[in-house]
Design a protein around this nucleic acid. Structure first.
Length: 212
DNA sequence: ACTCACTCGATCCGCCCAGC
DNA sequence: GCTGGGCGGATCGAGTGAGT
């Protein structure tokens, strides 16, 4: 799975017979708890079952061809809630979810994403100043962007350790740690055990991404 | 301004394997 | 069975700099 383009797409008048995409919040649904491609498939399928035919569905965002009426909004909300998703109404929560989705993409689905500067990545992805994003994230959640990113990286490390295909050295390199020693220290700090101990017990201690 | 995530280097430990 | 070397991993401490 590779990194996708920007999340937020909006409609504007047709050009060359094809719909163009410009900002328009009225046909965009912000969805909480989407963390993987299977979530995208479920959301897409539910929207299609409701006859909405989404133009695009990505982590945290679905864009519909037309503006969403109150009645449609309630139907979508009820349908998605049966699968554990939530529609997000307020702006702040929407931004926080976009930050989380961007980090999940970066850590779990983009092989080279962690090689880039994360604050620059988030700022350009969400078209906002990083310090504003950081402040909003800290205010809205009980953690910082940095801590959330670390938690996601450790979860990815757990996944790779369970597969048993890569050495700790390779995992450290993949997650852009400068040394195995630092990955090991951070792993122990977050999980309470060393990577080798985790590998040894082989218990499924991984968390769903939406619970991190 | 302060905190703490991160780097870097050094050292130690445990395991495996080959040679004797 | 013992020894020594190689390797992967863990730990520690000092210092730096980015983020809050």
């Amino acid at each position: 799975m590779k990194a996708k383009t920007n999340h937020t797409y909006y409609l504007c008048p047709k050009k060359n017979g094809m719909p163009d995409i410009t900002p328009n919040p009225e046909n965009t649904l912000h969805i909480k708890n989407m963390v993987c491609n299977r979530c995208i498939m479920v959301v897409k399928s539910q929207l299609e079952q409701l006859g909405l035919h989404p133009l695009s569905v990505e982590l945290g965002i679905a864009v519909l061809p037309d503006a969403v009426s109150d009645e449609t909004y309630q139907r979508v909300k009820a349908s998605l809630e049966t699968f554990g998703f939530e529609l997000i109404d307020d702006k702040k929560s929407q931004t926080v979810e976009q930050i989380k989705d961007a980090i999940i993409e970066l850590v779990h689905y983009d092989d080279n994403g962690l090689k880039t500067n994360q604050s620059d990545y988030l700022a350009s992805k969400l078209h906002r100043d990083y310090s504003a994003l950081s402040k909003l994230f800290s205010e809205t959640t009980n953690t910082t962007i940095e801590k959330y990113l670390i938690a996601q990286k450790i979860e990815r490390a757990k996944e790779l350790l369970m597969y048993g295909e890569l050495s700790l050295n390779e995992i450290a390199d993949m997650l852009n740690y400068s040394s195995v020693s630092y990955l090991s220290a951070q792993f122990k700090h977050v999980t309470g055990m060393t990577p080798s101990h985790f590998k040894k017990i082989k218990g499924n201690k991984r968390k769903p991404l939406d619970e991190i």
